[in-house]
Design a protein around this nucleic acid. Structure first.
Length: 276
DNA sequence: GGCTTATGCGCAG
DNA sequence: TGCGCCTAAGCCA
């Protein structure tokens, strides 16, 4: 489930659970074994998310960089940790918890320069305090590309994925095919603000929640595990939390959803609520 | 239990 | 442009 909110949720947790600890690191599934050997015995100084990327800043100057891709998963265990299951590329064991990185599309050790290079490729992350909306908005307002393609461009806004793209454009009553430079500046600004809002809600609950109000406490009777491990909350079916993504009809007006392709990804939009 | 699908992205060609 | 990665939820039987 990796859009930006997922990474922020996990990296915040990873910082709380592993920072300051001397880590036991291994790579049960192979290709990262040399990197794991370098990491083994290091101390985590800071875990941070940027867009859909995860970074662990270690002492010794190395930086772990990972990206979940479409399939990657993170699993956490209390100690003693169980036998690795699946393509565990990276296993980290801290003082009282362990973490598995499973099936990521990227898992590598970077130098400070390598880290800077990855960061340079990425645009503004709406979940970060250091985001500069004006930079992202300027790019959107100049491009001839359809807004629905530009929103997926990680060099513009880092962290939006296919679900949030569909839902953000719906919330803006905007056709995904509108060229960026034809979208009124105030609409672009409102999209940015809504992105911040929705990604924050998503990061808090570790779920994409768009329909309905966010609440301070658990949502929909969600059960919270006091140890902090993921629990099966009762959020209801995903389709009921979204307006258009993967729905047959628009949740607002019942018009059949148009399924097409834009920016190499499946696009869902309501032709009535989001008329051109 | 099996089959389909996917919230991403880099690379070969 | 299309494929490969390789997990797990959702759906069906």
């Amino acid at each position: 489930m990796p859009e930006g909110h997922t990474l922020h949720h996990h990296l915040d947790k990873q910082h709380r659970w592993f920072a300051g600890q001397v880590l036991r690191v291994s790579s049960p599934q192979g290709p990262f074994a040399p990197g794991a050997a370098v990491m083994n015995g290091a101390t985590l100084k800071r875990a941070e998310a940027y867009g859909k990327h995860g970074f662990w800043h270690l002492d010794r100057g190395a930086v772990l960089h990972y990206h979940l891709g479409l399939y990657g998963r993170l699993r956490y265990h209390p100690r003693p940790e169980p036998e690795p299951r699946g393509a565990v590329r990276l296993r980290v064991v801290g003082d009282d918890r362990a973490m598995d990185l499973i099936g990521p599309t990227k898992c590598e050790l970077l130098s400070r320069d390598g880290y800077a290079a990855v960061r340079r490729r990425l645009g503004q992350d709406p979940l970060r305090d250091d985001a500069d909306p004006q930079i992202a908005l300027a790019k959107l307002s100049r491009t001839r590309r359809p807004i629905g393609a530009a929103l997926l461009d990680q060099a513009v806004i880092a962290g939006i994925g296919n679900v949030y793209r569909a839902e953000l454009l719906f919330c803006a009553n905007l056709s995904p095919h509108t060229p960026g430079h034809d979208v009124p500046p105030e609409v672009l600004s409102s999209i940015w603000r809504n992105t911040v809002t929705l990604l924050r809600i998503g990061a808090k609950h570790n779920r994409i929640l768009v329909v309905g109000e966010d609440t301070e406490g658990p949502v929909g009777g969600e059960q919270v595990d006091p140890r902090g491990f993921e629990t099966r909350g009762r959020y209801g079916p995903k389709r009921d939390r979204l307006w258009v993504y993967k729905r047959r009809v628009c949740k607002l007006c019942d018009t059949p959803i148009v399924v097409s392709e834009l920016g190499q990804r499946t696009l869902y939009h309501c032709p009535r609520c989001q008329a051109a």
